[in-house]
Design a protein around this nucleic acid. Structure first.
Lengths: 220, 220, 220, 220
DNA sequence: AATGAATGAGCGTTCATTCAT
DNA sequence: TATGAATGAACGCTCATTCAT
């Protein structure tokens, strides 16, 4: 249960936002295990203040991810505006998501949906479900266009983007970018109707949001 | 330069092997930053013994990865034996590699090839290059069969497998398996000749071993 | 650059001072490589608190040494007050310095002057230079008095005191004191213009082999 | 109680000697707390062999020091041969001892004389006493010559040399040599009957603060 | 409410010393 | 006897988390 940010005092609220912005930067740079003290320092606040707002690391990451959903929504809007066709929009969305590496934060977004974490725009679960709905429309249209392979759902795309985005350890940033770019193209190729046996369904069963949530719960 | 394991005393050698086996297990479970002490504990030896054999974490990971190359080679042999066609063999190899998640260790295998780390079978670089050569034959044949998309090289496959294999943090093992299985099928679809625009080359330039090694060197 | 102690919270400041006092004691007993944990323990604080104030051993030693400069300055004032003649003041200063063994810490004071370590009283370099200037006046006057040998400068004295002060390892504290006392007289004799003929015996009793052996036995 | 080296098997004896030679080198380089394993390694033997010969570090250092007494005796002979006058011989001996830094090892030589440690030449106590006797003759003669100050005994000299020889920590080797050289002259001056007026300048150039700082900077 | 101080647990690493071959 | 393997304790240092101001 996270406190409602709307009820905070003005300064407290500014702090909260600053923490989230800084945390995203640092998480993107160093991963989600970066020292919390560094986040506090760069955000210009005390460590205890950070803890007051976010009682543990998981909560902070989750809130950052939640906040990020908004940006993803904006990318989606931008993509559909720029492309009259659904496949084109989808491809742009995927490319942008991977490039922005927003999804570094996503894994931790998945669990914990039952604790009705909420941010300004509503509960986390509600916002996620809304986003998935939008993506589902997009995918369905792309399939009707005969471009997106049958059987693909937003979860496939979402998780594919997450996997693509995660940088490999040890090797540098430059090489990671080269690798990710190349794999991204392969991924897009695999989504398309013309992919191998695209006429038949994929050999594996698709994940649904429900299944996802159930698995996460059993995984504690 | 790592000591030659063949020259070790019998008990020391047994320990060395036990460490590598245990380390692989734990690296697969927790990533390559898992506490070395836990490895030592589960291997049933003292922490200092581990340090005697592997003076730092990088050396240990590298040796584990090196050891893993052998297993990859065996999978390749098995795959070509089981399938008369190259595409079939390739698909099985990829599936097996992903399933065994051997490649969790691979990122660290890439750098440091110049320091001629060596194990029983020869230098690390030599073994890696040999493996790539075998895979190149396989991919070329699969392309001649008209099944594997043009422009794909073993590095694409290798790195794709690595990305697929890496488990997402936080979420449990079961869900990870579901996700990976599904993404694997998408990946295979993307490799096939019938993938999107498969007639044209991929938009991104392919990586070569040379380019790879150069990037790794500049990344220090 | 060290944080300004004046700005610390009251309790933190008390801790900081306690650490320095304890550190000086222990450095005098065991040398500057004594375990930091022991310092923390005896100071009654946690090890991390020590690290918060002094990020590494060198910083701690330097600050202890810096703090010591103040005491040296006070000794100098006391000596000049007590003795109308410069030689008398110098001799007392040297004796007091050696007896207090303050200068055990001095070696580490010498390097690192460029990094402008600072304490309450100003930069380290400034304070040291000021002290040397005062000592230079004293030596010059003593030479004009015809008592201090020509060619001697404060550095000779400073380093001589350091060498004298350092306890020999292994042997106990009592013996060290005897040795140092005797060598101190030799040192003063070497400094004086009239030391040579020295018709009078040295002020300290000479050590005999027997006495040496007996002391060693009691010192374990 | 140390085993009698004469009774050892030929190869064991060779090992023993090699250990002592190597240990002296390393002790001079790194101090008497240098890792024993490094000594064993450089001596080309196993660590357990070292332990078989010298059950603990103290024993090893003591034996090295004992062995060193021989070298000191040789220096003494050389000095008396080279100089017809006792003061000249004494001064040369002191200079040579300090230069060779043999006495780094001496502190640990002092204790433990009752346990009748013995080496080839006889018990440690006997050899030390013999050496002191020789030095006593020398000092007495020098005093009869009217050169050596009354009241000085070999122990003063011995311990003075030890103090002079010990390098200050942290600061580099070069600076240590400068310091020691200068202090050595002061020491000799203090010993001599005519030291006091010393119309001539010291043989070594004085250090200035600038020189000090420059040396420290180059010494890192 | 905000701060920054204090804490202790955890990991990496070294080394003296004992044990098995 | 010589060897090198194995051990565990000790220390340096970091960081998440709680507490006092």
């Amino acid at each position: 249960m996270t406190e409602n940010p709307t009820r905070l005092r003005a300064d407290a609220r500014r702090n909260r936002e600053q923490i989230i912005i800084t945390a995203r930067e640092i998480f993107l740079e160093q991963g989600i295990h970066a020292p919390l003290e560094e986040i506090a320092r760069r955000a210009g606040i005390g460590i205890a203040t950070l803890y007051r707002r976010f009682p543990d690391r998981h909560t902070l990451v989750q809130q950052v991810a939640l906040d990020t959903l908004t940006l993803v929504g904006e990318e989606l809007d931008r993509a559909t505006t720029a492309h009259p066709d659904a496949w084109g929009a989808l491809a742009q969305l995927i490319r942008r998501l991977v490039e922005s590496r927003l999804s570094v934060l996503m894994p931790v977004l998945l669990p914990g949906l039952e604790e009705d974490a909420r941010s300004e725009g509503g509960t986390l679960k509600a916002r996620r479900d809304q986003l998935f709905e939008q993506m589902e429309q997009l995918t369905r249209t792309a399939q009707q266009e005969g471009r997106l392979r049958q059987g693909i759902n937003p979860i496939d795309i979402w998780l594919g983007v997450i996997k693509l985005s995660r940088p490999l350890p040890v090797i540098g940033a430059e090489l990671n970018e080269l690798i990710t770019g190349r794999q991204l193209e392969l991924f897009l190729g695999g989504l398309h109707t013309t992919a191998l046996d695209a006429s038949e369904p994929l050999r594996r069963q698709p994940l649904t949001l429900d299944k996802l949530d159930r698995c996460l719960k059993t995984a504690e």
